[in-house]
């Protein structure tokens, strides 16, 4: 077991209750598709689990594991000169031709591919990807599903926070039932 919530509540830094009475388990080798309408608290739930932005969650148990949390892309410019290849040298969604492209000049799709390559080439136990399918073409989505399959075979876990379900076997987690 990696993460376990037992009758847990999610609150903002100001104490506002976002999600209540949540009970779930995340285990090794699982692909979990987190779904729910906009603004229900899907991303906030995982930000709270990893203690980001001051969000709090009660009654949570976490074992010792390494993780990579790729949040939603805000398409921001970066002040330092950085190429897409700087984010990941390994083979992935971004072609070798595009690796030299500057981050600030790349399109939303190219940026997204570079970020996903970096995330999936990082060696860890749990990958949390927030809206990974946004900005991606159908070929890249298919490749991404293949990458998930490979990770699961290696015993790693993947959490997808998305409006789009993955094309491979997965467990559904509907956050709206806790709102």
């Amino acid at each position: 077991m990696l993460i376990q919530a037992s009758d847990s509540n999610l609150t903002t830094p100001t104490g506002k209750l976002l999600l209540r009475n949540m009970s779930f388990q995340i285990q090794k080798g699982q692909l979990i598709h987190v779904q729910g309408p906009n603004g229900v608290g899907k991303s906030s739930l995982f930000k709270a689990i990893f203690e980001i932005e001051g969000l709090k969650i009660s009654n949570l148990t976490k074992s010792s594991f390494s993780h990579f949390f790729l949040p939603q892309m805000e398409n921001k410019e970066f002040l330092l000169p950085l190429s897409l290849g700087d984010l990941s040298h390994a083979k992935g969604l971004i072609s070798n031709k595009k690796k030299g492209l500057e981050w600030n000049k790349a399109s939303g799709g190219e940026r997204k591919k570079a970020l996903i390559d970096r995330a999936l080439n990082h060696d860890c136990d749990l990958y949390i990807l927030d809206e990974p399918f946004n900005h991606l073409d159908s070929d890249s989505i298919a490749k991404l599903n293949e990458s998930f399959e490979k990770l699961l075979k290696q015993g790693k876990s993947v959490i997808l926070i998305s409006h789009k379900a993955p094309k491979i076997e997965h467990i559904k987690m509907d956050v709206s039932k806790w709102s």
Binding site: E53, H67, C124
Partner: peptide
């Protein structure tokens, strides 16, 4: 250092636990 600068600028927090 470079990747962490990128993460902090783009997302406001680190993305990797390592």
């Amino acid at each position: 250092i470079k990747l962490q600068s990128f993460d902090l600028s783009s997302f406001g927090h680190l993305v990797s636990s390592s």
